[in-house]
Design a protein around this nucleic acid. Structure first.
Lengths: 224, 224
DNA sequence: GAAATTCTCACCCGTTCGGGGGATGCGAAA
DNA sequence: TTTCGCATCCCCCGAACGGGTGAGAATTTC
């Protein structure tokens, strides 16, 4: 962290008049990538400087082109969007990444923002909303669409799960019984039941089935 | 079924040299729609004649423009792709619809093919694969990518659920107990247990939690 | 008309599950 | 230091669950 200990003042990248916003597009769906590139190029004041089809490639390309804004899909094969954002922001803490996802699950949104994304857009949003968010984020803002922000609020009303509770939850969704969860996590069955009790309370369900459904619905665990 | 009882020979629409394949694009994601339109227009021998952003609009527009091929998303707000395909093929049994979906769940694929789709593509497929499928379907073929076909095979190995079993399954995923499922479906609890028994066997799980997870994983029931 | 399937319900029985307590140790925060 | 959250474990108990088996009625299929 030597870059944090020196005394160079934070260099804000301000928009230079007449210069286009340089965007990197990262998405694993070819037609979506084509669409995003076309969308951005059709907007005045911005241009696509590179594309990538997964997280790893996105990180590499970021280094090469140092774009002003990254438009990043979240769920991609191999390295997902969250890891990619973390890696990019580790190299460049000033990086401005906008997540563009199909899903509006609260956990996805939270993880994205937590990892440093400046905004979270949904793929069913209008080109105007996407373009204007790119501009805002480029200018240093960090705004969430109302629909997305509301989801985040819902989540914050749900109590946070502990690491162990997550372990039990994941094991539960694999179809295991309490006894099997216990042995798979090297715990006593009573401990598993204890975790389940708090888990049910936090997810506001009565039983393991409800817990499984809620966990999947909110993206707390991903299937496959 | 009066159209089936007359003796007019089936009129095959054969490709006319020099004429472009007229494609209708139906997708609720603006950037994806832009991408698909750009993709198709970039291909020699095909052109986009109309776009729609949901099922209803797709049906209307189909009537107006009578395209050669429809590229249709499956999961859309309001009327989904399946209903739209059924409606389109009811009006024009010769309609050639290709589903282009994000998801490769076997139930989605099955429902799409069942409702009359000529092919089922995934959004992570290459533009070449998408373009060549449009050409093939236009020529009257009905081919599935290997990856998709394999999923269908998996499904056929799973025993088909009966109507009542689906009812119980849906109720189960709403977090209901056996007793509650019984009263919600106006059944005795023993009958519910009886359905659950066969359900577990068909889905190859031991308990309700496993049934819920498998049902969601394979798209047998959709959340929300 | 026979066969198959589905839907319905019943009974028994053992296991699992979930709710109610409470207890310990441990590290971090106040 | 004390308090707090967390993880771990224990006990009791009743309700819910899942397996086995069977069986009558209705519908469809052959």
């Amino acid at each position: 962290m030597s870059s944090e200990s020196d005394f160079t003042p934070p260099m804000m990248r301000v928009p230079e008049p007449g210069t286009k916003i340089r965007v990197l597009v990262v998405d694993d769906h070819p037609p979506m990538r084509i669409g995003l590139v076309a969308l951005i190029k059709s907007q005045p004041g911005m241009d696509v400087v590179a594309e990538a089809s997964d997280g790893e490639e996105g990180i590499e390309v970021y280094e090469d082109v140092r774009p002003d804004v990254v438009l990043m899909d979240l769920r991609m094969p191999g390295m997902g969007g969250v890891e990619a954002i973390l890696a990019i922001r580790k190299k460049d803490p000033e990086a401005r990444v906008i997540v563009l996802s199909t899903y509006d699950m609260d956990e996805d949104i939270h993880r994205a923002i937590q990892s440093g994304a400046k905004s979270y857009l949904l793929k069913d949003m209008s080109i105007e909303e996407i373009a204007s968010t790119i501009r805002s984020v480029y200018l240093g803002d960090s705004l969430l669409p109302r629909q997305v922000a509301e989801r985040l609020t819902e989540r914050s009303e749900r109590e946070q799960l502990t690491e162990r509770e997550r372990d039990v939850l994941e094991s539960l969704i694999k179809g295991r019984s309490n006894k099997e969860i216990a042995s798979s996590l090297c715990l006593s069955e009573d401990t598993v039941k204890s975790h389940l009790k708090t888990l049910f309370a936090k997810l506001r369900v009565r039983d393991r089935t409800g817990a499984a459904v809620e966990a999947i619905r909110h993206g707390i665990v991903h299937l496959k």
